[in-house]
Design a protein around this nucleic acid. Sequence first.
DNA 1: GAAAATGTTATCAT
DNA 2: TATGATAACATTTT
Length: 277
Amino acid sequence: MEGPSLVIAQEEFEPFLGRKIQAVTGVKAEELKWLKGKSVTQTSAWGKHFLILIGDRVLRIHFLMFGSYRINSVRENREPKLHLKIAGGDDLYFYSCAIKEIDGPIEQIYDWGVDIMSPSWSEKRVLKLVLDRPEEQIADILMDQNIFAGSGNIIKNEVLYRLHLHPEALVRDLSPEQQRSLVRETREYGHQFYEWKKAGKLKANWLIFRKRVCPRCDLPVIKQPTGKLQRFSHYCENCQFMGDLASKKLRKRGRVAAVVAAKVQKKTRSSEKSLKH
DNA sequence: GAAAATGTTATCAT
DNA sequence: TATGATAACATTTT
């Protein structure tokens, strides 16, 4: 689950705030039985962390790749990690997720300036963090939760495709404009993701992720692990480039090579000339 | 039915 | 001590 989905979760949990927890069951019930009789004060989200505040205690839920939650419906043949029975007859279920109590207050442990979904998101701060890592591949940068909290593999691939950037391009090979648009577009796409997901149209709007051919040029999509993280990248070799500075360098190298070739040619010609004499 | 995949964390090795 | 590789976890989709 990526960041935008957690914002939706947070909205869906609002009706249960301040209502008494009548019963706690599920795999983690024993260690979480202290929840009984209490009520959720607030929920929050930072990146992919779903935070449940109960007074001054904080539960952190991470859905990882396969986690899910249900409100007033159960998943068949599955035991929830946690099931909260709420006064008034509502039920909250958490499946296949990592639940951990953490030490608050959350404002001191989380920096919302890097959360792509937060109103406190700071372009300046994020750009600085990106520029601090000139040698890294941008595919790795977009998965780094300390820089783009909430961004995941879908967001990574879609953003890079939209910007015509190759996943293996290095931060330092991007022009300053490209570096800035990388930062802006990731947040922008996160919000787009949120709207599409709420409308049930997320998959319909994927351009490159899990696609067979490039929607722009019809060539086959490359799918291979990239960077130090070795997560799969989906990209088009024809439409995504290594960055403006990288291509400038290549062009320059090309020009230098051409000049050298011309010199060699000239030299050869003149030595041929002197041989004739 | 195998393999990959909206991902992170703990543990062991270097 | 820090960095890196590997395993563990868990379940739907391809």
